[in-house]
Amino acid sequence: MRPLKKPTLTGICDQMASHDWSDAELEELVKPQFGIITEFQDLLLELEELRKVDLGETPPALSVQRRLLP
């Protein structure tokens, strides 16, 4: 997965517009400045890790352990 860039988000917003995002809001997703606990990029990386999990091998929900990202 490539790092998130503002032009990527701008393109997505232009093609799938459901909300008018300001430049400041998009910039905050790419480079948080206001104390967001988890960066959007970190969330995308975690989702990528989850996407790779073979659900056929996944035990019941309470026993699933979170894998730490490198």
Rank of each mutant, 00 (worst) to 15 (best):
R67V: 13
R67A: 10
T8E: 12
E49N: 13
K6H: 00
D23F: 05
S22Q: 08
E28F: 04
K5E: 10
Q41L: 04
T10I: 11
R2W: 11
E27K: 08
S63G: 02
P59E: 06
M1L: 03
R67I: 12
M1S: 10
E49A: 15
I12L: 15
L4A: 10
L43K: 10
D54L: 07
E48W: 09
R66P: 05
L43T: 15
P32H: 03
L4H: 03
L69R: 08
R2D: 05
E39Y: 06
Q41K: 07
M16F: 02
D14R: 11
A24E: 15
P70W: 06
T38M: 14
L44C: 08
G11V: 02
E57N: 14
E46S: 07
D42E: 15
E28P: 07
Q33T: 12
K6Q: 09
I12S: 00
D20M: 04
L43M: 14
M16V: 03
E25R: 05
Q33K: 15
T58D: 07
E28C: 02
W21P: 01
G35W: 01
E27T: 07
E25K: 08
R66H: 08
D14C: 02
G35D: 04
L4C: 08
F34H: 12
I36S: 14
F40L: 04
E46M: 14
M1C: 06
S18T: 06
L62H: 11
Q41N: 10
L47A: 13
G35H: 10
L29G: 00
D42G: 04
D14T: 08
P3H: 09
L26P: 02
V53A: 05
L26C: 04
T10A: 11
W21N: 02
S18W: 09
H19I: 12
E25P: 00
F34N: 14
L29R: 01
L29S: 04
D42T: 12
R67H: 05
L45N: 14
L29N: 00
R51Q: 14
I37M: 12
L50P: 05
P7E: 01
L4P: 05
M16Q: 07
L62G: 12
L50K: 12
K6S: 03
Q33Y: 01
V64A: 06
P59S: 05
E48T: 15
D42L: 11
